[in-house]
Computed example of a mutant assay.
Amino acid sequence: MSARGPGQGAARRAQHSTGLRALARGGYVASGVLHLLIGWLAVRLALGSSSGSADESGAFRQLASAPGGPLALWAVTVGFAALALWQLAEAVVGVPGVADAKEVGTRVKSAGKGVLYGVLAFSAARYATGDGGGGGQQESLTAMLLQAPAGRWLVVAVGLTVVGVGVFHVVKGWRKKFLEDLRGTGGGAVGTAVVRLGQVGYVAKGVALAVLGGLFVTAGVTHDADKAGGLDDALQTIRDQPFGTALLVVTGAGIAAYGVYSFARARYARL
């Protein structure tokens, strides 16, 4: 108990920090910028452009090349880092108002989000310093996993987990469950727009994640790391389907809608 005390105390202080709360809201703004850029790159991919990968790395590269790009990337880094700390604090001390039956699941989800935002903060910082990572990272990681004992089934499990997250996003958007994350929507026309953007955005993001998870499942089943990939590969898979160009344009627009929704979430999120 004594070992956990200091950590819990720090987490509680973080939860009551007005400054950290404001910076964490900035993390949702950073998420909005990232998704807008990914959506734009996805639409360009659908229309035949190969100027950049339609994923987080491509978005960071676009931001880095823009006027004032390094400064914007540092702002994104701070926002994601603050949001990561906020989520990890919730993982340690819990989310106020959550029923006991849901507490464990809520803490696990907060921990996962904290890790995700932490990775995004680290990636943004690397691009801000001109040290952006190269491509093929997903394939390399998958190849390493495939060499481990029962590695192919581990890759399949990872893929199925990502598929599950994608389905969760689709259901969350379709059933408007994301409204539980907000303390309001602005009311009137603004509120209606926020709800519609959230619905479209969550469904589109969920579809992309489900396809991404499917690539990992395929890599595991075939024992071929080249079958795996990142978000860009998933979007290319959508493009290669019948009516793929139209599907990818719709998906890209949906991801961009999620970006705009994230701006509203920065204002109305329960923090």
Rank of each mutant, 00 (worst) to 15 (best):
S2R: 10
S2N: 07
R4A: 12
G5D: 09
G5F: 02
P6C: 01
P6R: 04
G7L: 13
Q8L: 11
G9F: 06
A10P: 00
A10M: 10
A11K: 12
A11E: 10
A11N: 12
R12T: 12
R13V: 08
A14W: 10
Q15N: 04
H16G: 04
H16A: 09
G19Y: 10
G19N: 11
L20R: 11
L20K: 10
R21E: 14
R21D: 12
R21G: 01
A22Q: 11
L23F: 12
R25N: 03
R25P: 04
G26F: 09
G27W: 08
G27M: 07
G27R: 12
V29I: 14
V29S: 02
S31F: 13
S31M: 15
S31N: 15
V33E: 01
H35V: 01
L36P: 03
L36C: 13
L36Q: 07
L37Y: 04
I38C: 02
G39Q: 04
G39A: 01
L41C: 07
A42L: 02
L45Y: 03
L45F: 00
A46S: 12
A46C: 06
S49R: 15
S50P: 02
S50M: 04
S50K: 14
G52E: 15
G52S: 15
S53A: 15
A54N: 11
A54C: 12
A54S: 15
D55N: 15
E56W: 08
E56Q: 15
G58Y: 13
G58D: 11
G58W: 12
A59D: 06
F60R: 09
F60T: 03
R61C: 01
Q62E: 14
Q62D: 10
L63E: 02
L63Q: 07
L63K: 01
L63F: 01
A64V: 02
S65Y: 00
A66I: 05
A66F: 07
A66C: 05
G68S: 07
G69P: 09
G69R: 08
P70T: 05
L71H: 06
A72G: 06
A72S: 08
A72I: 06
L73A: 01
L73Y: 00
V76Q: 03
V76L: 15
T77E: 06
T77D: 07
V78Y: 03
G79D: 11
G79I: 03
A81Y: 07
A81C: 10
A82W: 03
A84H: 04
L85V: 11
Q87C: 14
L88R: 08
E90P: 03
E90A: 11
V92H: 05
V93M: 05
G94H: 10
P96H: 07
P96W: 01
P96D: 14
G97L: 05
G97V: 08
V98E: 05
A99G: 07
A99I: 00
A101G: 15
A101M: 00
A101Y: 04
K102V: 07
E103N: 00
E103A: 13
E103W: 00
E103H: 01
T106W: 00
V108H: 01
K109L: 07
S110E: 09
S110K: 13
S110R: 14
A111D: 02
A111H: 03
G112D: 04
K113F: 13
K113H: 13
V115P: 03
V115T: 09
L116M: 12
L116H: 08
L116V: 09
